[in-house]
Structure formats: C-alpha cells, structure tokens
Write a protein that binds this DNA or RNA. Structure first.
Lengths: 167, 167
DNA sequence: TTAAAGTTTCAGAAATAATTGAAACTTTAT
DNA sequence: ATAAAGTTTCAATTATTTCTGAAACTTTAA
C-alpha cells in the first residue's frame, strides 16, 4: 500500500468512527489529519487535503478548539493562523470524555433525577417507572463518576486501568 | 410533575442520548418504553405510545432484537407477538458494548493495523504517520480489551470497577 | 487611510438518515 | 382451500444534519 492510500484510508476510517459515535465526520477527519501532521497546518492546507470548503473547515476547526483538542498556533513571521492537534491519546480521550460528560451526561442525569422523583400512586406501572428510572439514574451516575476518576490519573490512565482490572 | 409528563420526558431524554451516541432515536425510545413496561408489549401498543408507523416500529424492534437487548415473547393464548427489554442495566451495557466492539471497533482496528504496517521511506511525514497510527492502534486495542474484560464480570461489573479504580 | 490579505458567518443547497404507508407475504382457523 | 388477521418489507417521502460559497468582517502593512 502506498503512503497516500494509507493516509486516505486512515482519515476515512477515523471519520466514519467519529460519526458512529456522535462526532461529525469532518470534525473527526480534521483531527485525524492534524494528528499525523508534523507541522501546524493552515486552514487552506486543511481545505485542500480534505477537499472541503472554507466554511466547513472553519466551523469544524472552531468546534475542535471549543472541545479543547485542537490549538491555534502563530508561526513567527507569518500572519496566518495555524492549527495543531492534541497528539497524546490519553489526554485526548480524557478531554473528550470530560466534554461529553459535561454536555450530554450531566444534563441527562438532571432529567433522570427529576423524573425518578415524581410522586407516584401505587399502581404497578408507576412503581415500575420509578424503580427503573432510579436504577438508570444510579447507573449513569456511576458511569459518570468513573469518567471523573479517570480524569484524575492523566498520565497513562488506560494502562493503569488495565492493570487494575486484570488483578 | 404528572406521571404521563415524566414518562414522556424520560423517553425523549433517552432517545436524545441515543442519537448523540450513534443509536437511532426511535430505537432508543422503544427500548426506553419497554424498560418501564411491566408487561410485554405488542407492536401496536408501541406504535401507539410513541406515535410512530408500523414500518418504523417493526424495523427498530428487529434491530433491537439483533442487538440482543429486546426479546420476542409469545403470550400463551395470544397469536400476536410481544416484546420485552433487557432490564438489567449491567447486562444491557455489556451487550451494547460487545456489539459495538464487534461492529465498529474491530473493523476499525483491522484498518489501523493495515495502514500502520505500510513500508515507509524516511521522510518526516511518513515516520510521523506510522508512529501515530501505531499509537492509535495500540490505544484502540487496549480500549477494546477493557471492554472484553468487563464482559467477563457480568454481575455488578460497574460497582466492581469503581471499587478497583478508587483503591 | 486604504486596500489587500486573511478570517468568519450564515442562508440556502446537498447529502444523509429516518420514517411512512401500502403492498407483499405469512400464519391461523374454518 | 381460502380468507381474515397478523407481520414484514421497501420504495418513496420527510426530516435532519452537514456543507458550500459568497458576503461581511477583521487585520495588517504601506
């Protein structure tokens, strides 16, 4: 396989995986591209490599910066802005996990708590509802707590986790 | 809050969370509905509760069955088919994790391995490509291994995991 | 101050994904 | 054997998400 072919395959794969997990394709592809770039890239270079429009590139770069996994960089002497990606995968995963917790899990938790706290009569249906939503709340809360704990390790948490699980 | 209102809110929330994580909204909603149902439900009841078409209900129920988190049930005396959901959240999470590993992570791994194994010249770019895709492969593989390990606990793995992480 | 270069925004277009509904198919009971 | 009831399928429609590209805005340097 050619380098170019491998590179394209890698970017496509990462983009597809992104969409399957709720991250938009272009966003994932831009990140993938920056991950394997040795130098910070300009918006033009990104547009060119991925064959996407300026608007699309700009919006998704901004989103990646909001997520905290891509950084602006100013090359001295150049007026243009350049971008680099977080390349440390442990850090990357933690940042994504934290953000998704904040944006998606925490709001869902709030609602689960709210609905599981309703006053019920003693009908079978309402009892079951309360019981299941309480369980769901507990479960999601535990999951979120795990994410929080992971976050504290920072260095090599994945390897540490494996060791802990195995023993 | 009314029971009906709480129920709708719960179903909407679960559906939204589903879409954010790559599971289609209706699929997540049907599962949410079955989770709080005390009795197996027929396709008509599901259509009626969620206000969706027969085709949509049927396709998504079938998908849930394929995933292994909803089961067909035949009530004795009734010809119609009824459906129940896996209500144990530990089992549910494990089943979903296993399926997603099989459907999405494993194929991605194959490609990462493939592209990280290309012959490279000694240009900076190609070296960086190989290095990063190898790291990515290792990382995704480790993640997948964790999922596999989890799977083996079955009972109360989430609680067990928390204990292990904390100490 | 101004105009060229660089950057961002956003309404409309395009692509993708989900849903409908009616037709085809299957099962059951007579 | 047949027709009513139940179930599944899938082409066409609808909804949602993403992307484009041109216009507006900002920065820089002469």
């Amino acid at each position: 396989m050619e380098f170019i072919e491998a590179k394209n395959k890698y970017i496509q794969t990462w983009g597809a995986l992104g969409s399957q997990w709720g991250i938009n394709k272009t966003m994932a592809q831009i990140h993938a591209l920056l991950m394997i770039s040795t130098e910070p890239m300009s918006i033009e270079e990104i547009m060119d490599e991925l064959q996407i429009s300026r608007g699309n590139a700009s919006m998704n770069i901004r989103a990646l910066i909001d997520w905290g996994i891509v950084f602006k960089e100013s090359k001295s002497g150049e007026r243009k802005e350049f971008f680099t990606a977080e390349k440390d995968l442990d850090k990357l995963a933690i940042t994504i996990a934290k953000e998704r917790s904040k944006r998606e899990i925490k709001p869902a938790l709030r609602i689960l708590q709210e609905v599981s706290n309703i006053e019920i009569n003693n009908s079978k249906n309402q009892k079951q509802f309360k019981e299941q939503t309480e369980k769901l709340y507990d479960f999601v809360l535990k999951t979120d707590n795990i994410i929080e704990k992971m976050t504290q390790y920072k260095e090599n948490w994945l390897s540490k986790l494996i060791v802990k699980i195995i023993k």
